[in-house]
């Protein structure tokens, strides 16, 4: 592997890690408050991506400014997160809150199956993409290798901004502190006067928006096909499981490890590309069964 290739792989990996982190962040946030891993999260990614692609294709002309296209991506993420997040949380999950955790998990799985078919009905089976965004931002040369500005600057920047603003939000704002309280103990938080229902909805929508944002940002650089949601729920779960459920900083590190390892595999052993995230997850879980960054929890008897 030459240095050029390694640099290219690193840049790709960081960009991919940015997407992974955003999606995993949504998943881990929802887990914190709801106590379940939302299998339908992959559908948020897919719908975010498809909606973004539709918006961009509709808006892009020969001289559409880049900012309009970027706003279209953001609008897609917000719209999808708000609509689908509300539908799933208020329409479905709230009804099964007191049931067996397995059944709650299955409800999100069922919702995922419904969303997958909806997506196929709306956008069909032919690949979609929003490549116009990448072109509108142009390229950049570093050490004689040409990168697209979109991948090397924009995606990692958004991921980092999301990380720091979420941390600040959870630590400094009123709602953020309430979210942390509900994550810690729903019962005690309710007793203290926090409206856990509203906080649950709010967090779910934020998480859904993050998942959809990952999809919207992936739309310009990948082609969306049916089944993309499945790949991403498993991928983002592998990030979250490697980090430990509910760990935000851990998810950032795990996303970087998995993203870079995967893109090195793309350049050196392309057949293994799909398998790398799972191998890392399995390797980590073998040594640390509840993830890299989890703190010990009391056993309930």
């Amino acid at each position: 592997m030459t240095v050029d290739l390694l640099l290219l792989a690193l840049a790709d990996g960081v960009s991919y890690a940015g997407l992974l982190f955003l999606v995993a962040l949504g998943l881990t946030l929802i887990f914190g408050v709801m106590g379940i891993v939302n299998v339908a999260h992959g559908a948020f990614f897919a719908f975010g991506g498809y909606t973004a692609a539709t918006f961009v294709v509709a808006l892009s002309g020969p001289d559409t400014p880049a900012i309009v296209l970027l706003l279209a991506l953001a609008a897609a993420a917000i719209l999808v997160g708000l609509v689908m997040g509300t539908a799933l949380e208020a329409g479905l999950l709230r009804r099964v809150q007191d049931k067996d955790p397995i059944l709650q998990l299955l409800v999100t799985f069922a919702a995922f199956m419904i969303f997958e078919d909806l997506q196929r009905l709306i956008w069909g089976a032919s690949p979609r993409s929003a490549a116009a965004v990448v072109d509108s931002l142009g390229t950049l040369e570093l050490f004689d290798v040409t990168y697209t500005r979109y991948q090397i600057l924009l995606v990692p920047a958004i991921a980092i901004v999301a990380y720091f603003s979420l941390r600040a939000f959870l630590r400094r704002t009123r709602i953020g502190k309430q979210i942390v309280a509900v994550t810690h103990s729903r019962e005690v938080a309710t007793a203290l006067g926090i409206n856990a229902k509203r906080i649950g909805w709010f967090t779910f929508v934020i998480g859904a928006m993050l998942g959809a944002l990952g999809g919207a940002l992936a739309a310009p650089v990948t082609s969306l096909v049916p089944g993309v949601g499945t790949d991403w729920i498993v991928l983002s779960f592998s990030v979250v499981a490697t980090a430990g459920l509910g760990q935000i900083t851990g998810a950032l590190i795990a996303a970087l490890i998995i993203g870079i390892a995967r893109s090195i595999a793309v350049y050196t052993m392309p057949e293994l590309e799909v398998v790398v995230p799972y191998l890392i997850m399995v390797g980590v879980l073998l040594v640390r069964p509840s993830g890299l960054f989890t703190v010990a929890q009391a056993r309930r008897i």
């Binding site: 009804r95 099964v96 067996d100 059944l103 799985f109 069922a110 919702a111 419904i114 196929r120």
Partner: peptide
Amino acid sequence: TGVWQMLLGITLIVVILAAP
């Protein structure tokens, strides 16, 4: 045709809600 998964999903939710 084409809504097979959706049908499964809806039935699953109905079963979980009505007859766990």
